[in-house]
Amino acid sequence: MEEKLSYEEGAVQPLSMHPKKFALWLFIVSVVMVFASLTSAYIVRQGEGNWLEFNLPDIFWYTSAVIILSSITMHWAYVSAKNDALDMLRLALIITSFLGFAFLVGQWYSWVALVDRDVYFVGNPSGSFLYVFTGLHALHLISGVIFLIIVLISSLRYKIHSQNMAQMEMCVTYWHFLGALWIYLFMFLLLNH
């Protein structure tokens, strides 16, 4: 039975990538386009002059460290799931969610730090852009944390193990992407602020 099914599948699916995973990649492409357009708008606008110069909040360094750390723990979760180390998987997922949450809190404090510097959302576009970048990224990160929690619940129900990795893999991809996106934004701001 199993083999016949796989034969039929072969007929239906010439490319053996999970459609949902593929769709996630396409979603990532569209998110990339949003941020690509915003960052190029930033450069275009900056080139026109009348640009408020200010120092980036130092807290971005810490939040960047947190998000890199969370990617490491996420990878740890992935390896654990692959090895069927379910307790480790849960622990890693919990830590990752916690780090994600810590990142969000850190970003909030970066806004507080900006306000302390008299850089507001309403005002010179150089500040407004910073709020839009961080805010929009934070929104995506919230969706990432929700995804993480869903995966965590599945893992508590023993639904994630080495034989059933699709959901886990999607979550890992998305999480790493969000981390990379933040690092890109941070580097971009460091170079262009």
Binding site: S30, V31, M33, S37, F121, N124, S128
Partner: peptide, 21 residues
Amino acid sequence: FPVLFSAALLLVFDRSFGTSF
């Protein structure tokens, strides 16, 4: 389409929140 989304988002901020994009 994501680029239109960005354009519209900044327009919303300009209209409703008083930013100056």
